[in-house]
């Protein structure tokens, strides 16, 4: 029994880290810096200037919304690569033929993704704030970091579902980009939920990031962690929901893939 737990923990931590390092060539600084550190800054600048041009909202609104939302790039793409990367290197069959428990196997791969998503968002938040002269109270930074971590976690939950779809959809990069675009429009990133049409706001409230972005804005405006506990709770709940759906879908589509011999179709 303890041996099983040790094995699962080893798969979770060691396997997850090795997989992350092996599958993601964006760990190269030539990819990481432009894609995950510079691009979000320009996304923030683009929408902050659109906001200035339209004369709506503050720079802080756009900095927080886009910084938190950009964690979707590492979280969605990295989780999709869990499947697509293994498939392209022709190791997917080997991974899925091992007796390793699937929950530590896939959750282990998601842990470094959450950490990376958190780092990308925090970097964007700090640099975006400095560039646009946005002042966030010193006391708000620690609660903000917690909210950003929750956002990265819940978005990685959606990433797990995305990874599961990767067992059926070959163009995972397109799928990840489409999900990124959906989150950009529906999650109140650049337009508050109040200003969106009702049906869009309703969809947004069931997507990851929406509640975290709202909580982060309230914290930056001076609210306490306790006052946004409900929003954080909803974000955690959605993350667990999407993560659970993702794990179930991974299991189901793996069985279907074995049955129809489509796991390694490039």
């Amino acid at each position: 029994m303890s041996g099983d737990i040790t094995t699962s923990l080893r798969i979770f931590f060691v396997g997850g880290l090795i997989s992350f390092r092996a599958l993601f060539n964006w760990l190269s600084p030539w990819i990481y810096i432009p894609s995950l550190l510079i691009a979000p800054i320009f996304q923030i600048l683009l929408f902050a200037y659109i906001g200035r041009s339209a004369g709506i909202e503050s720079d802080a609104f756009f900095v927080i919304g886009n910084a938190v939302q950009y964690s979707a790039i590492p979280c969605l793409f990295a989780m999709a690569n869990t499947i697509a990367g293994e498939r392209s290197t022709q190791t997917l069959g080997i991974v899925l033929s091992t007796p390793a428990r699937r929950i530590p196997l896939f959750l282990g791969r998601s842990l470094p993704v959450v950490v990376n998503g958190f780092f990308v968002s925090m970097f964007s938040l700090v640099v975006g704030s400095l560039l646009l002269g946005v002042t966030i109270p010193r006391s708000a930074w620690l609660p903000l970091a917690l909210v950003v971590a929750v956002a990265a976690m819940s978005c990685t939950g959606l990433g797990l579902t995305n990874a599961a779809l990767g067992l059926r959809v070959r163009e995972t990069a397109v799928l990840s980009n489409v999900l990124f675009g959906v989150l950009l429009i529906f999650c109140g990133v650049n337009v508050s939920l109040d200003a969106l049409p009702d049906w869009m706001a309703a969809v947004g409230s069931w997507l990851p990031l929406t509640h975290a972005i709202e909580a982060a804005r309230e914290l930056a405006a001076g609210d306490t962690l306790g006052s946004v506990a409900g929003l954080i709770g909803r974000e955690v709940g959605l993350g667990m929901l999407y993560g659970g759906v993702g794990l179930a879908a991974l299991r189901w589509l793996e069985i279907e893939g074995r049955r129809s011999a489509t796991l390694e179709v490039q």
Binding site: F47, I50, V182, I185, V189
Partner: peptide
């Protein structure tokens, strides 16, 4: 084809939603 159409549309839609408030 699809990607070159859909990707900019996400940003165009966001920009329209922002400017609509003006």
């Amino acid at each position: 084809g699809v990607f070159q159409v859909i990707w900019p549309l996400f940003f165009a839609t966001t920009a329209f939603l922002v400017y609509r408030q003006a």
